[in-house]
Nucleic acid binder design. Structure first.
Lengths: 341, 341
DNA sequence: GTGAAAGCGCTAACAA
DNA sequence: TTGTTAGCGCTTTCAC
């Protein structure tokens, strides 16, 4: 393993000074044949500029952290792609960190931010409390949040209106003839859980609501497995109460897939016996049987916006994107449309 | 935004030298009250050691790159979790880079490795050619590969026997009564595509093979969408040839989900009309309808092994893990088991 | 046990 | 245009 080639060695090889070498390779103001000589020397030696040296000097790492609750959720994977697509052409790499839903590990990620290992952080937290906001505002590096708006605290945020998104799903189901709805939510002390709950409560309390609501069942997590379990609990409750549920609004696609599975395990057909809607419009939701009716929250667009906001904060972009809010949009597919009535 | 606190300022505040300050915080050989004073000063000032400074001095970044073909594939997400689980307690962060399946971008990732921005790379390439191997062996940083064994080139590799894994699926289908099988593979110029193809060809050529093979259909990619398209092409071919296919072995779970979807679009029931098996044993495969029979390749275990191998290469671990091969294991679920015959 | 000083690799300000 | 030099923040020798 030949030891690493430094700029110093390139300079020696080219027979010129260190400064000229640096200028010839990156900077400005070097004569054509200086550039030529240095390039040749660098190529012969296989020179690669050392990242730590540049970082220390330039005070920039060209690394952006993407901190999410759960990288297993396809929504975050899609956002990651979108963010990567925007930042990569500007020479930034992405560091992914999974903060989980525990406040403690989120705090650990945040407090490690000021060691300068990244130039900025795009964070999509599940839970936001006072301590979290305090840490976030105390941070030295640019922060862009995805989710609940922290603009009041001076933190750039990309948000969406998931509450009215849930309203879209409720209206669609009622229009499709459903008369007995329930809501399957994730933990309600999370930002999405809280917003989506509000959306459901508002929708079923609206004057035009022509059906009955059997209320909400809360799953332990926004995952398929938690969805299966909670859906069974919900359906058991309905049976016990003598209610014949004909639709479940799920707080996201993973939970909706769980509902479909639980329904199947009980011999219920989706959508004929039970209509189901999801949220996030994930690719997997489009591919499962039946394909999920889902409320798109513009995952890719939100990721892009967050990345563009970050570029603006880093001074890489002349002007920040105009609006940083993405509206919900209903995608009707098989899981909510009865074959015939 | 108060500018960053440096060790120098902490030293001044504590009224001691720079060296003593450093020793008191991290190193050895500092008196109790020196530690006390320095700690207090650091706390008051909110000192955070600067990453670039340490990196430059220590020649370590505490960053490991995880380079995968497609982060959208749940297999890689699962590996990422596993790797993170092993490396995180040792103070390492993970940088994820999606190299795609183009040789060019893989080359770009590899050749950017020698700038010292990471301490090592765990790479799971889809395609491996001579140039790729050359770049990989020329790299200054420790490399651990997941996939095709590169041990012959001096590169630590975690491998599995996906070929005989496909054999497990074929045997299972024949035992379950299937008499006309086909293989739905991903691109065959990739490592997994090549290995799995070999596994299928070997299995159907074995003396004990009691069924007919309708051959292989190659999808453009290892994704659900590509699987849907290729499955339709395969089923069309079978119809044209007057063959009544009763089983499809898919090269991974995503393709298998595509097969299930295509079958459904044609009014075929899975598993009654068509039995389907996948590979990788992903969570989503377990949750879809019908739940996928799949060959586990020990994704989590392979990720852990790769991480442990990396720790050993970094000198963080006394001894490397004994074996770095994970055997395939068949998980029988609904997609291949006919309700009744 | 503590302080002084060198130097990791690089860029930019200043001189020539 | 080119060379010289300082210094980014840190750890670790080397004297004392």
């Amino acid at each position: 393993m030949s030891s690493r080639v430094t700029l110093h060695e390139v300079a020696k090889r080219a027979g010129v000074s260190l400064g000229s070498t640096s200028r010839a390779l990156h900077g400005t103001g070097a004569s054509p044949d200086m550039v030529e000589r240095v390039r040749a020397a660098a190529a012969e030696l296989g020179y690669r500029p050392n990242a730590a040296g540049r970082q220390l000097r330039l005070q920039r790492t060209h690394l952006i952290e993407f901190a999410v609750a759960d990288i297993g959720n396809p929504v975050y994977v899609e956002m990651l792609s979108a963010i990567h697509g925007v930042l990569s052409p500007h020479g930034y790499r992405i560091v992914v960190s999974s903060i989980g839903d525990a406040a403690a590990s989120a705090a650990r990620v945040l407090s490690s931010l000021d060691d300068g290992h990244v130039d900025g952080v795009i964070i999509s937290p599940l839970r936001v409390d006072a301590q979290f906001i305090e840490l976030l505002t105390a941070t030295q590096v640019p922060v862009v949040a995805i989710g609940r708006s922290l603009r009041a605290h001076g933190i750039e945020t990309v948000s969406t209106d998931s509450a009215s998104g849930i309203g879209l799903a409720v209206t669609h189901l009622v229009d499709a003839g459903c008369r007995s709805l329930a809501f399957l939510n994730g933990p309600t002390d999370t930002t999405p859980g809280e917003h989506r709950q509000r959306g459901y409560d508002t929708a079923v309390a609206a004057p035009g609501f022509q059906a009955a609501s059997f209320g909400t069942q809360v799953a332990d997590d926004f995952t398929v497995a938690a969805g299966v379990e909670a859906a069974h609990a919900l359906l058991d409750r309905a049976v016990a109460a003598g209610v014949r549920l004909d639709a479940v609004v799920a707080a996201n696609d993973l939970l909706a897939i769980g509902v479909v599975r639980a329904a199947r395990e009980r011999g219920l057909s989706v959508p004929d016996d039970l209509a189901v809607t999801g949220m996030d419009d994930t690719e997997i939701g489009r591919m499962v049987q039946p394909a999920l009716t889902s409320v798109s929250l513009g995952t890719t667009r939100r990721g892009q916006l967050a990345a563009e906001l970050m570029l603006a904060r880093l001074g890489e972009s002349p002007e920040p994107p105009q609006l940083a809010t993405v509206g919900p949009e209903l995608k009707v597919r098989e899981s909510s449309v009865r074959s015939e009535l």
